[in-house]
Every structure is written in structure tokens, then in C-alpha cells.
Amino acid sequence: MIINMIIINKILDFSAINAFTTSVAIVGYVIVFLVLLLLTLVYNLIPKIIAFNVRRRRKKQGKCDDCEIADTEGDVTAAITMALYMHLNEIHDEDSNGITIRRVSKQYSPWSSKIYATNPFVRI
């Protein structure tokens, strides 16, 4: 036990935790938090400012008096965008819907000739 204490005291130097180092740790962590908290608040505010500006502009243009700007989910927007893109570029399936086999102009072929399929030697 005593040996353990000696080892711990020799390896672990608790005197290094003084007012300066503690303040570095605590103040440092608090500043990191504050910076990101500030950014959180700012980025929360930005969409509201943008929405306010859009509403004001539309009101000026007389498009609507009480416009509500809806927050569309990203995947919904992606689906709408994809549909519009495909519609505008007309790259969706467009075919004749004809699924019949087209007749070939050359109808005779030795491969389809009936004469080759018959046996010339008739059994009596």
C-alpha cells in the first residue's frame, strides 16, 4: 500500500493542476461551447431573416398579403426536383407501347421452309 502510494505520488504529479492550468481547461471548454452556441443562434436566425425578406418582397410585389414560407423536408425537395428535371428533360420512359413482333419483309427462308421438314420417302 505504501509502495503504491509512493509510486502514485512519483508518477502522478497533482501539483501541476494549479489555478492557471485549471483555468485553461475550464475557460477553454467554455469558450468552445460559447463559439458553437453563438453559431447555433446565428444559424437559427438566418432562415428567419431570409423568410422575412422573401415575405416582404412578395408583399411589395402584391403576390400575397400573408405569405407563409414552409420548411420543406430535404427528401421531399429532392423528389420534386428529380421529377421536374426528368419532366423538363423528357428522359422518362417514352416508347410506342407496341410490343408485337414486327413482321420481316423476307418471308421465305430455308430455315422456315416446310418442304425441308417433310420426309420425301413415304412409307407404304
Binding site: L12, A16, T21
Partner: peptide, 11 residues
């Protein structure tokens, strides 16, 4: 910051 303190204790 916790490791910073830990490293200090380890000398």
C-alpha cells in the same frame, strides 16, 4: 480538456 489535465498529472 480532460486529457490536457491528465497529461499534466502524468508530468
Amino acid at each position: 480538456f480532460a486529457t490536457f489535465l491528465g497529461a499534466l498529472i502524468l508530468g
